[in-house]
């Protein structure tokens, strides 16, 4: 059965645009100009995805399990050049920059080919799936991820959950045990629910834009995060990608300087599905 299916679809399977005819490709756009670094998205993620709260000491030792994290970067002090530049920066120092960082659902994910048991793979709708039950914990994927957004269960964190806090766990997804890798799923449980809903309503291959909302997007007070189907030409996320001239399938974008869109570590050719819009900075004239 498998072999027949294989032979019939051989030429399709190895096509570069294998996912061309799939109705969905989930993507995200994050406007860093709107991000205030409040961390509401992080909290929402903890609640939605049953992330363990590891406590102060373990957090400090690097065991934090925040699938979504707010990274802080500071600009160089006034009159000193930025990284890679010779001239002093024009931008005055304005405190920290924030960048929410989570799994970029890379289309050429470096974590996928290195897993010995194929616990992580690419779904047809453009997600980088992690199969918890299959993971044996070799942690190769974690090393090979340039964003370092894969989180390993170093302990059985759920055992530390005090009663009655287990009551607030989200029943839509599992609680992970020690020894397995986990990461942001773009709230796959919500995506599933949204697709099911669309099917019930009689249009199985098109989810209306805005009906699937990730937890971080839902909570963001400044609406910095936009999530949606990149294949849907009318979706907001597609519009943003088009406006900021970020295209798929390339490791270098051909666009003018003043267009803000970019993808992190694009030059590694990992094809992230998340586009960031750079912060607009004032210059001292």
């Amino acid at each position: 059965m498998g072999l027949r299916r294989m032979l019939e679809n051989w030429s399709d399977l190895r096509k570069r645009d294998y996912y061309e005819n799939e109705p969905y490709m989930w993507g995200m756009a994050i406007d860093l100009d709107k991000c205030t670094g409040c961390g509401a998205c992080v909290t929402a993620c903890y609640v939605e995805n049953n992330l363990p709260v590891v406590g102060k000491e373990k957090f400090a030792s690097g065991y934090a399990m925040h699938w979504m994290r707010i990274e802080h970067y500071w600009t160089e002090p006034d009159d000193s050049p930025e990284i890679g530049q010779k001239e002093p920066s024009d931008h005055p120092e304005r405190g920290a920059h924030f960048i929410p960082m989570m799994c970029q659902q890379c289309n050429h994910a470096p974590c996928e080919p290195v897993c010995p048991v194929a616990a992580t793979y690419h779904t047809p709708d453009g997600l980088n799936a992690q199969v918890y039950n299959r993971c044996v914990g070799s942690r190769y994927c974690g090393n090979n991820c340039p964003f370092k957004v894969r989180y390993f269960n170093f302990f059985d964190f759920w055992k530390d959950l005090p009663e009655p806090l287990e009551q607030q766990l989200n029943p839509d997804l599992s609680v992970r045990s020690k020894g397995i890798m986990e990461k942001c799923t773009f709230c796959v449980q919500r995506i599933r629910a949204g697709k099911d809903h669309a099917e019930d309503e009689g249009h199985p291959h098109s989810v209306e834009d805005g009906t699937i909302v990730t937890a971080c997007q839902q909570t963001c007070p400044t609406q910095a995060i936009v999530f949606g189907n990149l294949k849907d030409k009318s979706s907001r996320v597609h519009q943003l990608w088009a406006d900021h001239q970020v295209k798929l399938n390339r490791h270098e974008q051909d666009k003018p300087e003043d267009v803000r869109g970019y993808r992190v570590f694009e030059e590694l050719n990992v094809e992230p599905s998340v586009m960031y819009m750079d912060r607009v900075r004032d210059t001292e004239i």
Binding site: M6, L13, R14, K15, R16, Y19, A118, P124
Partner: peptide
């Protein structure tokens, strides 16, 4: 590899 392909298609990659 083929057997895996029926379960987990790796579109665009060599079969």
């Amino acid at each position: 590899a083929q057997s895996m392909f029926t379960v987990q298609p790796q579109g665009g990659k060599a079969v």
